[in-house]
């Protein structure tokens, strides 16, 4: 028998979709800012101006979303908790991690039962959150250069001195490509688990519900 469980609470789902929206917009506009692939036919246009405006607006949205999700890690249920991102901390988590990794590498056939994140995904998400924070910090450090002595320059401008503003730009650019790689991986893994686990992996992020085989628990 399948048990219907409410796993992904609404703040988790909202933050997830805000992240999707802002990341797509940030990658597209950010790529344009780094390499303007359209040329305006005349000076009355404002292509780069709009691209930068969108990039900075979605940067603020993304920041709010990531910060909200991090706060929810301390408020929400066990699946959204910060503890869920460190499956290594428990014995069952470690066993399930190895099992999952073996499934992915075709060396094992058995899928571990995971109500929330599977342990390999959870570990990856921890890394992704680190990259999110890096993108936010490096992005606002570079952004702050337009107003020396202003808010962003005041709190993050030291990074431009410590790391060098050109290295920050290169890293900000490089991490975007890592996130593009993650995007591909994430959609693929979601599809794979939806097919193989048959527990509502894909629909769960829309509805919040997943189907758990009660015998697994």
């Amino acid at each position: 028998m399948n048990e219907i469980r409410y796993v992904w609470q609404w703040p988790v789902r909202i933050c997830h979709w805000l992240n999707v929206l802002s990341m797509i917009m940030l990658a597209l506009t950010g790529f344009f800012i780094g390499r303007p692939f359209m040329t305006a036919p005349d000076t009355s246009m404002y292509i780069m101006g709009w691209m930068r405006m969108l990039h900075f607006s979605f940067a603020y949205l993304f920041t709010v979303s990531v910060v909200a999700r991090i706060i929810w890690m301390f408020i929400g249920n066990e699946h959204s908790s910060w503890k869920a991102f460190f499956p290594w901390l428990t014995k069952e988590g470690r066993v399930a991690f190895v099992q999952m990794l073996r499934y992915y590498t075709f060396t094992g056939k058995k899928l571990p039962c995971s109500v929330g994140h599977n342990p390999v995904a959870a570990t990856a998400y921890f890394g992704i959150f680190v990259l999110f924070v890096f993108q936010i910090v490096s992005g606002f450090a570079i952004y702050g250069q337009f107003a020396p002595g202003g808010f962003w320059d005041g709190i993050l401008g030291g990074l431009n001195v410590l790391v060098g503003n050109q290295w920050l730009r290169l890293l900000h650019h490089g991490v975007m490509w890592l996130l593009v790689g993650f995007f591909i991986n994430h959609i693929y893994s979601g599809w794979l688990m939806d097919v193989k686990e048959r527990n509502g992996t894909m629909s769960g992020i829309f509805s919040g519900y997943r189907f758990i085989k009660s015998k697994d628990l």
């Binding site: 075709f106 899928l111 991986n185 693929y188 599809w191 794979l192 048959r198 085989k213």
Partner: peptide
């Protein structure tokens, strides 16, 4: 990344005998 996961996906479609914990 896309190629690697594409191959993984094709292989996954054909694998037999997968099982959930139960």
């Amino acid at each position: 990344t896309a190629v690697a996961f594409g191959i993984h996906g094709v292989a996954s479609c054909f694998r037999k005998g997968d099982s959930m914990a139960e």
